[in-house]
Design a protein around this nucleic acid. Sequence first.
DNA 1: CTTGATTTGTACTGATCGGTAAAGTGTTTA
DNA 2: TAAACACTTTACCGATCAGTACAAATCAAG
Lengths: 185, 185
Amino acid sequence: MARTVAERSDVIPVLAEIFREHAFEGASLSIISEKTGLGKGSLYHFFPGGKEEMAAVVLKEIDTWFEVNIYRPLRDSDDPRAAIIAMCRSVTDYFHSGRRICLVGAFALDNVRDRFAGQVREYFANWKSALALALQKAGQDGVQSSALAEEAVISIQGALVLARALDDPSLFERAIRKTEQRLLS
Amino acid sequence: MARTVAERSDVIPVLAEIFREHAFEGASLSIISEKTGLGKGSLYHFFPGGKEEMAAVVLKEIDTWFEVNIYRPLRDSDDPRAAIIAMCRSVTDYFHSGRRICLVGAFALDNVRDRFAGQVREYFANWKSALALALQKAGQDGVQSSALAEEAVISIQGALVLARALDDPSLFERAIRKTEQRLLS
DNA sequence: CTTGATTTGTACTGATCGGTAAAGTGTTTA
DNA sequence: TAAACACTTTACCGATCAGTACAAATCAAG
C-alpha cells in the first residue's frame, strides 16, 4: 500500500480546518484520520510529534500565509493606503466574511495557548506592527498609528467572535468596512 | 456521609472557572471532580444531565449576572451616560482587565457553539440591544446607536482575545477606555 | 528484476473518557 | 423511632483517547 493522494503539504490545510472546527482537544486522531484519509501509521510517519506537531505546523503555515499576503505588503508597499485596503479585502476573503474563525484567536482563548504561546503572540504582534508601520508611512504619527493598528486587529478578532455567535456574516463585513474607514481617515 | 461543604449553587462559579480554563471538551469529569471536591456520584446527583447540563447552568448563571449588572442598568437607568460608564467599569472588573476570558465568546468559537447556540446568541444580542437602547436614550439616533453598540461589544471581545494572546492586561484597559470615549462622544 | 527507502494498514497498549449502579451514610420529617 | 430523603462513596461499564510497533505494500532508482 502506497501513496494514495497525499503529500505532507496537502494535509496541512485539512488539519487547519479540523482544528478550526473542533479546537485542539476536540480534534481526535480518529477524526483527523478520517478527514485526511490517512491512517494513524501515515499520520505519525509525517508528524512524529503527534497532534502537537500537527498544530504547530498548521500555526507555522498560517504565519507564513499572513506574512506573505498581509504583513509584507503592509510593510513594503510604497502605497500604504492601498496596502491597507488590500489587507481588509484579503482578511474578508480569508475569514469568509466571518464564517471561518481565526485559529490563532481560538487557541489564544483555549488553555492550549500555553503550549503555543510563542506562535500565538507572534501572530498578533506581527500583525499590529506591520499595520502600524503602514499607517506611519501613510502619514500618521507613531503613537497614533500604533493605537489605530491595535484597535483594528481587536475589531477584526471581535467581529469574528460575534459574527459566529450571531451567525451573521454581514456583521463581519460591517466591522471591516468601519475599520477600513477608520484606518484611512 | 452527607453534605461536606457544597451547595449546588456554590459549585457553579467553580464550574465556570473550569470551563474558562479548559474549554468544554478539555474539562474532563476528573478535573471537575477534583476542583469542585465532589465525586462523580455527587456531580451527577446535582447535574443529572452531565457535563452538558453543567455548562448550560453556567451559561444561565452568566446570563443572569449580565442581566442584573449590565443589561438592566443600561435599559432602566435614567442617566444613560452614567450607566454606560458603569458598564465599562463592571466589564473591566468582571474580566479582570483581560486576564479572564469570556466563556460565551470562547464557546462561540468552539464547535460546542452548536450545542449552546441559543444561549450564546442571546448573550450577545441582549448586550447589543441593551447598549443600543442606552445610547438612544442618551440622544443618538436609532441607526447610529445600534452601530455603536455593535462596535463596542466587538471591541470588548476582540480585546479579550488580544489581551490574552499578548498577555497584556493594559491592552484591554486601553481598549475599554477608547470604547467608552467613543460611546460617549 | 532487485534493492532500499518510503508509505501504509493493522493490531495493540495503557490511560482516560463520560456515564451508570447501587450500597452506604447522614439528616429531616412523620 | 422509623421511614423518607439528600448526598456520597466505590466500583464498574463500554468507548475512545493518544501513541507505538511492525510487517506488508508500494515506490523510485539502478
